[in-house]
Design a protein around this nucleic acid. Sequence first.
DNA 1: CGTCCGTTGTTCAAATTTGTACTCAAGTGT
DNA 2: ACACTTGAGTACAAATTTGAACAACGGACG
Lengths: 164, 164
Amino acid sequence: MDRPRWLNEEEKRAWNAFIAAHALLYQRLDQQLKRDVGLSHLQYMVLARLSGAPDRELRMAELADAVQNSKSGLTYQIGQLEQAGLVCRRNCQSDVRAVYARLTDEGMALLERAAPGHVAMVRELFIDALTPAQLQALADGLGEANRRMRECGGTATHEFERRK
Amino acid sequence: MDRPRWLNEEEKRAWNAFIAAHALLYQRLDQQLKRDVGLSHLQYMVLARLSGAPDRELRMAELADAVQNSKSGLTYQIGQLEQAGLVCRRNCQSDVRAVYARLTDEGMALLERAAPGHVAMVRELFIDALTPAQLQALADGLGEANRRMRECGGTATHEFERRK
DNA sequence: CGTCCGTTGTTCAAATTTGTACTCAAGTGT
DNA sequence: ACACTTGAGTACAAATTTGAACAACGGACG
């Protein structure tokens, strides 16, 4: 029904800024974490999530969801972290299938060593570049976008291209 | 000098929203592009960039920079696109080292077929979730962040963690 | 109970990304 | 012309991600 409504200049500007900002930020953060403590940003997020969880442990699936990664991807990463002694697996007795990933003391220690530098960088590159008002607008707007994406698994383009 | 200044709630909210939004968006967009036209989001961006360039061609390095990818990563992707007939390479006669990637007619055709659905999705998931004011704040703020990151190759954390 | 359906975490191969090393030329200064 | 430094694109191996296939359960229901 609706012929393609292209983005106008303002919309394009926002979209491009968003994409570019993420790429640039990610690159810097990842690089710094690797250099300083030998963790990828993904690994850092895993540790950070665990550190905030009760008993410092989460089930694989929850964790995967929390860091927005696939199950198999998380299996791999937890494998790496486990090998590095930063995390350990624990089986649940009430549900044989369940596996908990738990942050070890070494993991916690490393996280505490990594956090200051990481946070400083986030602040420098992201937080401090935005005014408080912009920050709030961004949090509100993207928060709403996230809400929409999370709920409806796929309103989007269900039958969008059913010609070919 | 400065002891770690952690993020306050508002800052955390913004940062998390930003990270989550990108992951969510990227996943959806990538999936849709693959489903509809068999392109990854990166490949789409490559084609889109080329389509907007004079003569529909760009040098490898420029293109790599434009889509924020490493040189070797771009070599790989261009290889894929070339094999699919969507792009072709052209050598420059004035500079033997230079290689141009050019969008072929098929590439252009595919891009035109892909664009409507892609744009519709960007609009639905991103643009329409934000108010015009939020959109502008986001464009301004992130634009500023990008500017900062682009100019100084690395003000950040030069000598930040030189203890360990 | 036994059956069927949806979950959970893993495995495995293929696709992609990363990072480094390399090859050739341009450009510079001598 | 001759080193010398840098830049462009590629090659390649190692690391990571993806996606489908699997094995093993829980849970609901007849």
